[in-house]
Simulated scan of single mutants.
Amino acid sequence: MQIQTGTRAFITGASRGIGRALAVDLAGRGATLGLAARSTDELEALAATLPGEHHVLRCDVADEASVREAIAAFAAAAGGLDLLVANAGLTHYGPFRDQTMDQLRQMTDVNWYGTLFTVHAGLPLLLAQAPARPGHIVIVSSGAGLRSFPSAAVYGATKAAQRMFGEALRHELGGTGVGLTVVYPGEIKSSLHDHEKARMPAWYHGDEKAAPAEALVEKIVAAVEADDRAVHFPPFVRLLGAVHGLSPKLADRLLHRLRGASAAPRLD
């Protein structure tokens, strides 16, 4: 599909980081946006800066009814849905043994169930108008879905779930006119870790070496228009995924060398 004037795009987690950068890019291309997040204050401020008319929607992706209501409201107001972006996510880094079940459930509810709820609610709308009007789904996973890291065991698990879900669903949608791209960001400048910077593990280099969200967004838009299966950014994410798929032990040694012992405490 081509993103252009009249494209109707619904984005979860649109108030900050990757979601916000994507909203700015799509609005600049003439798309009509459904900007969704739990709090609407930042969304209202964002919408006021964007060209065109857009729809601000209160949406808690961990609540199935909230997601369905937000997507239905956007589709009714915009006259349909063309691009569905499951982007909302959160982290709680730390050793699994020290984390609370509330933290673990929150990551599971937002990252994994939030993706399921979003895609399950939006997919029928995309299929109803395809193939005459092609549609697309974007699932924002993580490089942690390719190789999970210490202190991010459950976060990585939720991102791997997104990966496997997206890979299978892409095949199921073959020939329907609805495409699907899974995005694997590495360390991207965002507010994802603002609440936990004091306890980030030593292997994390996101503060000083993170890539700009705008550069990732350019890759996402190109992938949507080309119906690519995946986006890996920065490029090291693709290399890490390939090496880990070939030999987890080799990937551990690579990370140990590049990021230190905290990234791979065991090399056996």
Results as ranks from 00 to 15, higher is better:
Ala202Met: 11
Thr118Glu: 02
Glu187Gln: 14
Thr115Ile: 05
Thr115Met: 11
Asp207Lys: 12
Lys189Gln: 13
Asp63Asn: 11
Val231Glu: 02
Ala45Met: 05
Gly177Phe: 05
Gly17Tyr: 09
Tyr155Glu: 01
Asp41Asn: 10
Leu46Cys: 12
Gly122Pro: 00
Thr32Pro: 02
Val221Lys: 06
Arg253Ile: 11
Val110Phe: 03
Pro51Arg: 05
Arg266Ser: 13
Ala73Phe: 09
Val119Ala: 07
Ile71Phe: 07
Val183Arg: 06
Ser190Trp: 04
Arg105Leu: 12
Ala76Gln: 14
Pro235Lys: 04
Leu254Asp: 00
Leu240Glu: 05
Ala261Pro: 10
Gly19His: 01
Ile188Met: 07
Thr5Tyr: 08
Ser141Leu: 05
Arg58Leu: 09
Asn111Glu: 00
Thr118Ile: 04
Ala157Ile: 06
Val243Phe: 11
His171Trp: 14
Lys159Phe: 05
Gln129His: 12
His232Gln: 03
Gly260Ser: 08
Asp102Val: 08
Ala152Cys: 08
Leu50Arg: 06
Leu84Gln: 03
Ala78His: 04
Val110Ile: 11
Pro248Ile: 09
Met200Trp: 08
Ala160Met: 12
Glu69Ala: 15
Leu216Cys: 10
Ala222Ser: 13
Asp109Gly: 05
His55Gly: 00
Tyr155Gly: 01
Pro212Asn: 10
His193Glu: 03
Tyr113Asn: 14
Ala264Leu: 04
Glu187Trp: 11
Val119Glu: 07
Ala121Ser: 14
Tyr113His: 15
Ala211Asn: 03
Asp252Val: 04
Pro234Ser: 04
Phe149Tyr: 04
Ala62Gln: 05
Glu172Ala: 12
Ile3Tyr: 07
Lys209Arg: 15
Arg105Pro: 00
Glu196Trp: 06
Tyr184Phe: 15
Leu57Glu: 07
Gly89Met: 03
Arg58Ser: 14
Val182Cys: 05
Pro95Glu: 14
Ala88Glu: 03
Arg38Thr: 02
Lys219Pro: 02
Glu208Ala: 14
Phe233Glu: 03
Val56Arg: 04
His54Glu: 04
Arg253Pro: 09
Trp112Ile: 01
Thr181Lys: 01
Glu214Gly: 10
Ser66His: 08
Arg259Thr: 02
Ala70Glu: 09
Ala48Met: 10
Pro265Glu: 05
Pro234Lys: 08
Leu83Pro: 01
Pro134Val: 08
Gly13Trp: 02
Ala152Met: 06
Gly206His: 05
Thr100Ser: 15
Glu208Ile: 00
Gly156Trp: 01
Val110Tyr: 03
Asp102Met: 07
Gly175His: 13
His55Arg: 15
Ala161Gln: 12
Phe117Lys: 02
Ser247Ile: 07
Leu169Asn: 08
Leu50Tyr: 09
Gln99Thr: 07
Ala72Gly: 15
